[in-house]
């Protein structure tokens, strides 16, 4: 087994609201155990209200578990200092790019994280330039964020985390507010981070075609982990996925309905399978 980076041990989390003087608890996650290994690309799938965002927020100590324990590289973030240490290891990108950009100029925003870490100015400059280059936004470094497209803004937000040189990035539905082009840009960037830079990626999403690209898929439903495995294993089980209110990618569904093969993941594979069925080249 490779090195563990994030470990959930029997984690339960409940949101508390005050109603008529008696605190009422809404459980968001119940008894979740999950290990994320170094260098992995894990997709967390689930429909709205399944607890997948809560799971993401527990990864870098934004939320504290009600019961159980979250460990990041051996650190249990039970104090403010330790939480800060965890945030130096696990960075986070949120859904709405507008609400996470701090500065009025792209490069200043990317510099925000490293500045908080107290890094030498010359070193920050280098990190910022490298981070912007790695998300293909270097030419935009002097622009104002509000003049960029959604996909570009989200890439700036990702660069902001890269510049902090965290070992792991948690992305909480980073493409939910983007158009197809923006989604594609962000997904390409995320995959490159994982494959080329070796950063561990946890991608929370409800898009099946994004989950397919991961090394491992974790399906969350009703605050529990209900499936955990390779994309091919997960998507072989169309009926089970449906019962969690989730869809499957179109090519998977086509092959499933036609009864050709289970667990087909993308269009090319689907074309190959149908061609084989037709007994010739297409």
């Amino acid at each position: 087994m490779s090195e563990k980076i994030i470990e959930f041990e029997n984690v339960t989390f409940a949101y508390e609201t005050e109603e008529e003087d008696a605190p009422v608890q809404f459980p968001a996650l119940t008894d979740v155990s999950l290990t994320i290994n170094k260098g992995e690309f894990v997709a967390v799938l689930g429909h709205n209200g399944s607890g997948k965002s809560t799971l993401a927020k527990l990864c870098n100590a934004i939320l504290e578990p009600t019961k159980g324990k979250v460990t990041v590289k051996g650190i249990v973030p039970d104090t403010e200092e330790k939480a800060d240490e965890v945030r130096r290891i696990v960075g986070m990108v949120f859904q709405n790019p507008d609400n996470q950009i701090v500065a009025t100029i792209v490069e200043d925003d990317v510099a925000f994280g490293p500045e908080n870490l107290g890094i030498e100015p010359a070193q920050i400059r280098k990190r910022v330039d490298d981070a912007l280059k790695s998300v293909n936004m270097y030419e935009f470094r002097h622009r104002e964020p509000h003049k960029l497209s959604g996909g570009q803004k989200q890439r700036v937000a990702i660069a902001g985390v890269i510049a902090m040189q965290t070992e792991c990035i948690v992305l909480d539905e980073p493409t939910a507010m983007l158009d197809p082009k923006g989604r594609e840009e962000v997904m390409q960037t995320v995959k490159r981070l994982n494959k080329e830079m070796g950063i561990t990626v946890v991608l929370v999403t409800h898009f099946m075609d994004e989950a397919v690209q991961a090394d491992r898929v974790v399906v969350v439903d009703g605050g529990r982990i209900v499936m955990n495995g390779k994309p091919r294993e997960i998507f072989s089980n169309v009926e089970k996925l449906r019962s969690f209110g989730l869809d499957v990618p179109q090519s998977t569904e086509l092959c499933h309905v036609l009864g050709i093969k289970e667990g087909v993941l993308d269009v090319d594979e689907c074309v190959d399978e149908i061609a084989r069925l037709a007994g010739g080249a297409l």
Partner: peptide, 11 residues
């Protein structure tokens, strides 16, 4: 949300 994001970036 911004406060969350800033905390995440170690502010």
């Amino acid at each position: 949300e911004l406060a969350f994001a800033m905390t995440c970036r170690c502010y």
